[in-house]
Amino acid sequence: MAFQILLNICIALIWMLLRNEFSGVEFLIGYLVGLLLLFVLRRFLRFDFYFRRVIAIFKLMFLFTYELILANIDVIKIVLSPKMDIQPGIIAVPSDLETDWEITLLACLISLTPGTLSMDFSEDGKTIYVHSIHVPDKEAAIKQIHNTFEKAIMEVTK
């Protein structure tokens, strides 16, 4: 992956030299041309086209933002309701992710989603302890974490 990015930047530099214009816009155009070349040649290069991962990263960021907005609506609803009808508690969420990097990302994602806040890890990093405002619907929360977030993170790292 690192090699491909380097190749892409090299193509962009060559493009800039050929055009004899040294500006950010020309670099961007060159980068896009290089991207297109790599995409066309992806079957001969003996490795995956790296831009698939970049798209996955953008998907993850979009998911992040969407969940953050939902979480805010949720918090505002609770704050503005005259009675505090919340049922908080700490629940344990098992996770299938392996490396530290992935689990950190998952914890951040959990913190910014509606009604949940990651609090602690177990020692082997397989369980995340999450503070939830609505404990009765914890099954739905765990399911969402498994199906949506872990999948999105896996797409980036695998």
Partner: peptide, 13 residues
């Protein structure tokens, strides 16, 4: 935790 909290999985840990 708040008095009305329902569950505490972390205490065992």
């Amino acid at each position: 935790l708040w008095d009305k909290s329902i569950q505490d999985d972390l205490s065992g840990h």
